[in-house]
């Protein structure tokens, strides 16, 4: 195998929901270790795009290659890619019938075939990293939103993925809990994780992103380094969007 220098390569990709053209000719290449922030108006296809990367959604034309594996209909390839990509959802999606620790150890034991002891050790490590090791024996329903989202991050990390996908991880949180989640994401970025984040946290984008991708109506309208993106947006739709969310 030739060494891969890209983590994700999406080429001429199209996606339909029935007759609705949800993603139009998407081309996006993400290097290993790169941090991408995707933003854009609601309904522009951001979630659909990152959910295509681990095949939570089908796509209909073009190609997606993740870490050298072609994402096609081959189930083995899909499994392979899902093992190597972690995902964090807007609504956490923790398993409510399992303790925090069980949430974190389940997939490593089933998918990575780790022993229980090994999985629990890793889980506690990552729970410590997201600063809630003391909640290990509680159930998700007993935690605050911010804590649940940090558990969700730890749960994804326990699979030791190469790439992390975040779909609006802070949008469902009360304002005072947003920073505790962003802090975890920043430290993850500092460690060199490849990250694709759909978020409207512009402070986070400026601080962490290597590149900001702006989407509208199912298209990638503009991509640029954060400073250029925020200070000198090129496209009219980008300018309109930025003035709306930045409030000027």
């Amino acid at each position: 195998m030739t060494p891969q220098n890209h983590a994700v390569r999406i080429a001429e990709m199209d996606k339909y929901y029935g007759t609705f053209h949800a993603l139009k000719n998407i081309n996006l290449e993400i290097a290993k270790g790169e941090k991408i922030v995707i933003c854009g108006p609601s309904g522009s296809g951001k979630s659909t795009l990152i959910r295509c990367i681990n095949k939570l959604e089908d796509y209909h034309a073009g190609s997606i290659n993740v870490l050298g594996t072609e994402l096609d209909d081959n189930l083995d390839n899909i499994d392979e890619i899902r093992r190597e990509t972690g995902m964090v959802f807007q609504h956490f999606n923790l398993f409510p019938h399992m303790t925090i620790l069980e949430n974190c150890t389940l997939a490593p034991m089933l998918v990575r075939k780790q022993s229980q002891i090994e999985a629990e050790q890793t889980a506690l490590e990552f729970l410590t990293k997201v600063k809630i090791p003391e909640q290990a024996d509680k159930y998700p329903g007993q935690l605050s939103g911010g804590q649940q989202q940090r558990v969700a991050i730890a749960r994804a990390l326990c699979m030791q993925p190469e790439i992390m996908l975040f779909d609006e991880p802070t949008s469902a949180l009360d304002p005072e809990m947003i920073s505790e989640v962003l802090d975890v994401m920043v430290s993850l970025a500092d460690e060199g994780m490849t990250m694709v984040c759909v978020t409207h946290e512009m402070g986070f984008a400026r601080q962490v992103a290597d590149r900001v991708v702006f989407m509208a109506d199912g298209e990638i309208v503009e991509e640029a380094a954060p400073d250029a993106f925020f200070d000198a947006p090129q496209q009219a739709r980008t300018q309109a969007f930025l003035s709306q969310i930045l409030g000027h």
């Binding site: 681990n54 939570l56 499994d79 899902r82 093992r83 990509t85 972690g86 995902m87 959802f89 999606n93 923790l94 398993f95 389940l106 997939a107 089933l110 998918v111 969700a152 749960r155 994804a156 699979m159 996908l165």
Partner: peptide, 9 residues
């Protein structure tokens, strides 16, 4: 979806 994303069969 969360279970799929974790690679569970």
């Amino acid at each position: 979806e969360a279970a799929k994303a974790l690679g569970m069969s």
